[in-house]
Amino acid sequence: MARYEDITALVGDTPLVGLPRLSPSPEVRLWAKLEGQNPTGSVKDRVAAKMIEAAEADGRLRPGGTILEPTSGNTGIAVAMLARRKGYRLVAVMPENTSLERRQLLAAFGAEIVFSPAAGGSNAAVSKAREMAVDKPELVMLNQYANPANEAAHYEDTGPEILRDLPGITHFVAGLGTTATLMGVGRHLRDHAPDVQVVAAEPRYGELVYGLRNLDEGFVPELYDEKVLSRRLSVGTEDALRRTRQVLDSEGLFVGLSSGAVVHAGLSLAREATRAGRSADIALLVADGGWKYLSTGAYSDELDDAANALDGQVWA
């Protein structure tokens, strides 16, 4: 049965598809969990729904209320869609160095955008949102970096879906942003399949994004617990971009740039397993499709040009 009451019933239960052409052998296989199949096209639909429900349940968010959230795009778009349906307003605080499509989608769903400076990337968006929340206490900040509902969405849903569809999973790889996907899925795997390696693919942006005035302005999300991870791999812009194109060429799968980083890390793990003569089933979390990044030239320009263009951007 593929009939649903309304669009919100479509969140989650995303497909896990094999990547046989990218996989090194029938014994070492890569699988992609396609979160772009969610209603607004990213994994953040899961998180937005859970965080809004939690804020309604504890009475912080009331009819006619205004939500405030720092976001580089996907969370804002997901929250904006639900907010519109439920009659809330959304003020999204977004770094000015994010893709055009993300701004357009936020506007399309009726969100108000406040820009934060490019230098400092998401750090600057978080601090700006915190200042605004102090000035206007009536704004309801969901605070995805610290909100347990963010992690719960993955512990309760994403994790069980992966284990249901890939019982023999050996590795789980996801991008590291708020860290909630890795924390939630990782804890579920620790509880039910403790031998699985939980691996973070961390985007390594251009220098502008690390442009803090001093180190004390650094930021580690409250949700992050390094004990949940087995490894954390840093993936540069060019590698992420190259893999994004490779997965498109070989499998016909059109994924966003953070997923290029995840594929890059997944291929390293596949290579290690092959070299060690071990079999592996590696699940890759594909957070979104490529649609929102077309204007960056990621899929059309020469690789070097595209990498240069993305250098100062928060591309994941």
Binding site: K44, P70, T71, S72, G73, N74, T75, G120, G121, S122, N123, A125, V126, Q144, Y145, G175, L176, G177, T178, E202, P203, R204, V209, Y210, L212, L215, G218, F219, V220, P221, S234, S258, V314, W315, A316
Partner: peptide, 11 residues
Amino acid sequence: VTILPAVAGGM
């Protein structure tokens, strides 16, 4: 070896 400040990622 790469040294980087810890910053908030995309979200």
